[in-house]
Design a protein around this nucleic acid. Structure first.
Lengths: 152, 152
DNA sequence: GTAGAATTGATAATCATTCTCATTACGGTG
DNA sequence: CACCGTAATGAGAATGATTATCAATTCTAC
């Protein structure tokens, strides 16, 4: 697929009810069983899942979805903003269906539980730093990890 | 044991790794040409280099250092705290010779210039968040990126 | 229905990184 | 200075995650 009309339209579908707010359905993105199964699994999971883990779960759930398809849809959904990508220290990328808006994650290193952090103080720091060093369009990326109460 | 030998030139980072109390056998870190070449290259670079880039540079500089050796030493040096690992959005890990102490990086997305940020406000936030959610041993990881003054 | 394009799936291909193991060289010693 | 024990190196194989390939399947619209 090289010369594909990549029209990343995402006009609507930013509905608030996070339960069944599956994106797509416009005209370019088809609503396939696989994509729904993938999103459904993520929407119900409490922790972030890697592509491989998700693939495993889907296989166990009788929804035999190919690994390549899992990767494809995960990437797409992340681009559309429907799910959130989290980088694990080990290198893999895990995904999770998150609420909207800017936020970070606090992940338990043992059980993988995730807490969304919406009160980001980094933005202020970032702004100050940017001004201080003459930088523009500064973005930040951050992850917190620790051991949750249950795991101690 | 006067651990005098492993003082890789380049002042700073006097991280006296005294955490090698192996009984019986002594696993000394030897000073090899390759390791010196690797560190030297990093100490002079202004931007962070990935293992592959470093390997390429060393090859070009007639210091034929094997790729595996580059990886090995990079990992070791990072553990010792002599160099700093930076995760690129694309996934590879890049390394840079940094000052000691906890700090983060502000990288120019265009030219790759790096600024060390030593006044990290995330620690406070992190602590508060940890207490709030009952987490323990919370660590954080963060990167800032933007466009530097020269590149605008 | 039917056509036609987006999508899927099995597998090959990448890419960065790690492992293996025979060979080399560092560093102290006699 | 020659010698030894051992950490370190190097070339390539192995791994693990992710991406590309491409014929065979669905969706969706008509």
């Amino acid at each position: 697929m090289s010369g594909r009309s990549q029209k990343l339209k995402q006009g609507g579908a930013e509905h608030a009810s996070a339960e069944h707010a599956e994106p797509g359905g416009a005209s370019e993105t088809r609503r396939t069983q696989q994509r729904q199964a993938i999103f459904h699994e993520l929407a119900h999971g409490d922790r972030a899942l890697s592509a491989q883990e998700l693939h495993e779960r889907l296989r166990a759930a009788d929804a035999g979805v190919g690994l390549a398809t899992v990767y494809r849809n995960l990437g797409r959904l992340a681009e559309e903003g429907a799910i959130d990508a989290i980088r694990r220290p080990s290198g893999e990328t895990a995904y999770r269906a998150c609420g909207a808006g800017h936020h970070h994650h606090l992940t338990c290193r043992r059980c993988g539980a995730v807490v969304e952090l919406h009160d980001c103080t980094i933005a202020d720091w970032s702004r100050r730093i940017a001004a201080e060093h003459g930088f523009d369009q500064v973005e930040h990326q951050a992850e917190l990890s620790g051991i949750c109460a249950n795991c101690r």
